[in-house]
């Protein structure tokens, strides 16, 4: 239901599937982060979290531009057609990104997990043979430092903050960590993307690197029992987001609200 004169490129190529997964993760987690704007637990944190939300939206835009890469004349319209004009089953984000923000402990746990994931993903993509992908990853890695610092800041303070804060963080992590394994599910034709060098490493290796980076921090914080086993399976409820299967949290909650205005006025300029 995009503008009549806008023909999106074929999105099923390995390159576009890989890039859509990255972009959709950013858009949907940014959309969920924007929930806290105006209602965060402190004014300072409100400002910090809003930047995290904006970065998600902004980074999604940049990745969508790489998906389009010269195939449309009107890049903004193309970006919106990708971000707001697809049917729910065309989105490739992992299901953990679409979960509602619940409370601030869950939100912080999810951001901590996603940020550690994003750090290893961007680090690997910096070596992509696709120069545009590598260049954007380097840029975003720099930007992403703030997210990592912010996430680690509250992680540490909740851990040290006494029984209740540590317990609540534990509950949040216990919900997020198993579902986070869905981040590492392969997109369609991932093998081809790895063979081409677009993806320097595949999902199995990416998952190992993420565990190497997250596990010691979880263990030090007393959450060793929450560290996912190397061979743990993705829970059914959080599986197949990378193939376009989404839960009601996306299909009924996020997607209709996020895309309605765009879809109701095909071709309109805003």
């Amino acid at each position: 239901m995009t503008a009549v004169d806008l023909a999106l490129p074929d999105l099923s190529t390995p390159r576009r599937q890989v890039l859509l997964a990255i972009a959709d993760d950013a858009l949907i987690s940014g959309h969920r982060a924007s929930h806290w704007t105006g209602v965060a637990p402190s004014l300072e944190e409100d400002l910090a979290f809003s930047t995290i939300a904006q970065a998600g939206i902004n980074h999604a835009d940049l990745w969508y531009q790489l998906v389009l890469a010269g195939t449309v004349d009107d890049v903004s319209a193309g970006v919106d057609a990708l971000g707001l004009g697809r049917e729910p089953d065309a989105y490739r984000h992992a299901i953990v990104c679409e979960r509602p923000p619940r409370d601030f402990a869950y939100t912080l746990a999810r951001h901590w997990v996603l940020d550690r994931f994003e750090a290893v993903r961007l680090a690997s993509l910096a070596d992509s043979t696709d120069r545009d992908v590598a260049a954007l990853s380097v840029k975003l890695r720099h930007e992403h430092r703030y997210h990592l610092e912010h996430a680690q800041l509250w992680f540490d303070r909740l851990v040290r903050g006494g029984d209740e804060p540590a317990e609540r963080l534990r509950d949040g992590l216990a919900q997020v960590l198993p579902e986070a394994l869905g981040l590492f599910e392969p997109v369609e034709a991932e093998d081809q993307a790895v063979a081409d060098g677009l993806l320097p490493i595949g999902h199995t290796q990416l998952r190992e690197r993420w565990l190497e980076s997250a596990a010691p921090l979880l263990e030090q914080a007393g959450f060793a029992d929450l560290v996912p086993a190397a061979d743990a399976a993705v829970p059914d409820a959080a599986a197949l987001g990378r193939r376009g299967c989404h839960t009601d949290d996306f299909v009924v909650d996020v997607w209709p609200e996020m895309t309605r205005l765009y879809r109701e006025h095909p071709g309109a300029r805003w």
Binding site: A55, N58, H59, L62, K139, L140, H142, E143, R145, Y146
Partner: peptide
């Protein structure tokens, strides 16, 4: 360097 933005804002 944390204040040096790489992305267009």
């Amino acid at each position: 360097t944390l204040l040096q933005r790489q992305v267009d804002i």
